[in-house]
Design a protein around this nucleic acid. Sequence first.
DNA 1: GGAAGCTAATTGTCTGACAATTTAATTGCA
DNA 2: TGCAATTAAATTGTCAGACAATTAGCTTCC
Lengths: 245, 245
Amino acid sequence: MKLDPASAKDLSAQIAAAIGDEIVSGKLIVDARLPSEAELAEHFQVSRPTVREALKRLAAQSLIRTQRGATGGAFVNRLSFEQAYGQQITTSTLLLSMNAVSFDVACEARYALERACAPLCAARRGEAHLDRMRTEIAVQSDPALSDEDFCASDVAFHRALVDGAGNPVLSYHLAGAVEAMQPLMNMITFTARSRSAIIDLHSRIAGAIAAQDAAAADAALSELAEYTLGLGRDVMAARQSRARD
Amino acid sequence: MKLDPASAKDLSAQIAAAIGDEIVSGKLIVDARLPSEAELAEHFQVSRPTVREALKRLAAQSLIRTQRGATGGAFVNRLSFEQAYGQQITTSTLLLSMNAVSFDVACEARYALERACAPLCAARRGEAHLDRMRTEIAVQSDPALSDEDFCASDVAFHRALVDGAGNPVLSYHLAGAVEAMQPLMNMITFTARSRSAIIDLHSRIAGAIAAQDAAAADAALSELAEYTLGLGRDVMAARQSRARD
DNA sequence: GGAAGCTAATTGTCTGACAATTTAATTGCA
DNA sequence: TGCAATTAAATTGTCAGACAATTAGCTTCC
C-alpha cells in the first residue's frame, strides 16, 4: 500500500483509495482488521486526523466498520444486500433529480427493467408476494388516500413484483430503478379516473402473476408503461400551456 | 439542521446524515455553497476535525466537492452519470464477491436485464454502437488473447449493446450488472471451443441489432445466457469432482 | 492601464492531549 | 481453587490550537 506523492488529491483521499483497492481486490477479506489508526499514520507517514478522514470515507461507502475498545479497530465490512439497496436508492434518486432526466427516459428505463422480471416472477412467485401485491391494490383503492401515499403504495406493489422473481441480485438492481421514480411520480397529480385505470392494470398484473401467465403479465405491464408515459406527457403539456398564459 | 443528542452514532456520522438529508431532499441545491468548516463547527457545537470527518463522508459519496482558497469551501456536487456508473460498479462487484452469490443467480440477473435492452437497442442503435460491437468481436477472435482480456472484451461488447438503447438511466442501471460479472466470468476458463461458440453468438446478436431485428437479438441473447450458465455449471461440477479426489 | 505584490479567507495537515469504551489481566476474597 | 471486583492497556472519539497551501480580490506602483 503506497501513495503517489505527485497526486493532486488529498492525502486522505489517496489513503482511502489505497485501502479501498485492497478491499475491492480481495487482498483484505471480510472481517479482517485493519491496523490501528496510529499504525496507519506511521505506515503512510501522515498524522492521525488524516488517517481518520480516510477511514471515514471508507465507512461512508460501507467498506469498513469501526469498533471502540481494546480489541476494537476498523474491520472490513461485509456489504449486505440491505446496505446495497440503500446506497442504490440514494444514488439513483439523486441522479434523476440532479440531471434533469426527463420523465420519459426514467419511465422507459423502469418499465423495461421491470418487464424483465415479469416472466421470472410469474414462474416463481410465492404466496407472500401475491399477498403483498393484493394488499397494495386494496390500499390504492381507498379514495381518501393522498397522492403521496398512492405513489408509495405503487412503489411497494412494483417492488413485490420484482422481489417475486426470487433473485436478490435482480431485486438489488431494480430497487433503485423503482424507488427513484417516486419523486417523479409524485409530480403527477392523479385524477380519480387515472387512479382507477392504474388499479385495473395492477389487478391484471397481479392476476397474471397468480396464474403464472408471463405473457399476460408482460402485456399488462406494457400497457401500464404506455399509460404512465401518457399521464406524464399530459402533465407536461398542461404545464407548458399554463406557462404560456 | 439539528443533531440527536441521544443517537448512538458518531458525531461526524450524525452531521453527515443531517447535511446529506438536506441535499437529498433538495433543500440544498446543486452548486450551493455550504458554510465554512469553522461555521459548521460553530453551528453544530463540535470541533473542526469532527466537521471535517463529516464532510469527507459526504465527499466519499460524491455529494459534495471541496475547493481551497478565498472563495473556496464545500459545494453541493452534481452527481454525474460517470460518477454514478463508478459507484454502481464498485457496489455491485463487492456485493457479489462478499455474499457468495452463485454464478447462476448473478448470470440470470444479468441476462434478464440485458434482454430488456435488446429491443430498444435494435430500434435505436447508431453506427458507433455497431462499430464498438464489431471491434470487440474482432478482439475476441484473436486466439492469443488471455482469458482476462477475453472477459474484458466480453464486458465491453455487452456495454455497447446496453448503451445502444440510448437511455442513460438504463445504461447506469446495467453498468453494475454487466461489469460486476467480470470477476465471476474470469473464474471460468474458456476453451477454444467455447470461445468460438460465444463469438458466434456475439456475431448473431450484432447482426440482429444491425438488422434491427429485436426478436432475433433476444433469441441469440437467450441462447448466450443458456450457454454461459452451462459453462458455469460445468466448471463447478469439475471443481467438485476434483475436490472429491 | 497593467503587472506585481499584499491581504484575507478557506481548506489541508500536524501536534498533542484527553474522554469514552472495551477487553484482558490482576488482585483480593471466600 | 474459584470467582468477583478492580485495574491496566489498547483503541477509537473528540477537542484545541497552530501552521501550511491555495486562491480570489484588492492595492500599489510603474
